[in-house]
Nucleic acid binder design. Sequence first.
DNA 1: CTTTATCGTAACCATACGGTTACCAATAAT
DNA 2: ATTATTGGTAACCGTATGGTTACGATAAAG
Lengths: 109, 109
Amino acid sequence: MVTIKRKQSEAVFRAIADPTRREILGLLRGGGRTVGTVAANFRTSRPAISKHIRLLRSAGLVTTRKSGTARICQLNGKPLRAVNKWLRDYEAFWDENLRKLKQYVEENP
Amino acid sequence: MVTIKRKQSEAVFRAIADPTRREILGLLRGGGRTVGTVAANFRTSRPAISKHIRLLRSAGLVTTRKSGTARICQLNGKPLRAVNKWLRDYEAFWDENLRKLKQYVEENP
DNA sequence: CTTTATCGTAACCATACGGTTACCAATAAT
DNA sequence: ATTATTGGTAACCGTATGGTTACGATAAAG
């Protein structure tokens, strides 16, 4: 199970590495959209977008449901928790105040 | 300038996509280390690690300084702010409470 | 000065990635 | 029944990625 989770988080990091996929996620923040509607926002071909969506789906970031011939994509943000969790360990390395507070606490037992 | 920043953040997302590079960053959280010391933690060859470090450096996540023949790597977390900033827009999509609060606020003007 | 340790880089290789075009399946519309 | 809409997937292509080995540069040690 730990292995599965690790693989999942692995997929998420890879999924958000691509700017087009991040843009797709951004679009879906505005609500569910069909694949075609999503694709219309890009210059690239629909099959290319379709492949991106497939990858996002396998990373758990997007779910789809059929509606007639259309297929509606929905954002699922939960897997992003893994990224957020990972980031927390680095917060002290970009937040100067937090870094100094941490240092203070460590140096004054 | 905006373009530069965008490219930088782009590089950061790419950089953290690789598990080996994330592990390197994790090691560096424990303080500065030489390239060789970092490489010793992996099965892959030193040149491979060296290339990862080069990429991390170009993303601004690692800085290096020479000390004799050695080269000491240091973590720089600041570029991770971009990832954190990006993530904030999705917080409502994994935090159920936040999502509901947002919904309440929007529905009760 | 010669030797050793540390590291970067070039050259090369297999595979993954992101894109395209062509085609097919399924449902809706006529 | 026929046609149009929607979208998934296969086949292919150029490039990026991550790895290796071989070599060279540089500073410390002898």
